[in-house]
């Protein structure tokens, strides 16, 4: 029963926050993986992104959901580290790969091997709110090593308005969550990267979004 902090946090705080205070406009929910192992890829604008993505899945899957997050940020102090690993269930990874260091994605590979659903933000950082940056290629290594695992792209919009980087005040907005059909590794890294970017662009252009600057 070591899952109870996570279960309690998500039922009592995250779900009411995400579903009532924010409110989601989810499209093509059927594309989400029903079980692990699977990889969910999304653009990153806010700390809320992780919580929203995790709320899309039934509570029974909660312990399988593992967001990949930066160790330098989330493991910075013991309290945050406890919260990030025990309550959210993140997989901390090193953003800067030191020379001769072991594979930074090894813990992610291990989680996939035991059937977890990985949530990953290939932009690497939240960056400027509601501006998508180029995807980093770490996702390719995961796809290549697990070529039968589905990669589901998810486009998020609005969370960067609700709680952008560097702000502590949450302002409610309806948020768009558009899920694309799953992609698989087909032996070509540039092809997969292109497919991912094209899918994200297609999802982003499904609906015009109000200007935000």
């Amino acid at each position: 029963m070591k899952d109870w902090p996570k279960l309690l946090f998500f039922t009592c705080i995250v779900r009411p926050l995400v579903l009532i205070i924010l409110g989601l406009n989810v499209r093509h929910r059927q594309h989400l993986p029903a079980t692990g192992p699977a990889i969910v890829v999304a653009n990153h604008n806010s700390h809320l992104d992780t919580l929203v993505l995790m709320s899309l899945f039934p509570l029974a899957q909660l312990r399988r959901l593992r967001p990949v997050a930066a160790a330098d940020y989330f493991m910075a102090n013991p309290l945050l580290a406890w919260f990030a690993t025990r309550v959210i269930g993140i997989i901390p990874i090193e953003r800067k790969n030191h020379e001769g260091h072991h594979d930074p994605l090894a813990p992610v590979q291990a989680a996939l091997n035991q059937g977890d659903i990985i949530i990953i933000f290939p932009e690497g950082t939240r960056g400027q709110p509601e501006r998508m940056q180029k995807f980093k290629s770490g996702i390719i290594h995961l796809a290549k090593a697990h070529d039968t695992i589905p990669i589901s792209p998810v486009f998020l919009h609005g969370l960067g308005k609700s709680l952008p980087k560097g702000e502590g005040l949450l302002v409610p907005f309806f948020c768009d969550v558009f899920v694309g059909p799953a992609l698989y590794w087909q032996g070509d890294r540039t092809r997969l990267m292109q497919q991912l970017e094209q899918q994200m662009e297609a999802l982003a252009s499904e609906q015009g979004h109000a200007a935000w600057d």
């Binding site: 702000e167 005040l169 907005f173 309806f174 109000a210 935000w212």
Partner: peptide
């Protein structure tokens, strides 16, 4: 909330 999500807003308006 729906209205504010639809209209153009600015970060400085938060």
């Amino acid at each position: 909330k729906e209205y504010l999500s639809l209209i153009p807003t600015r970060r400085s308006d938060r």
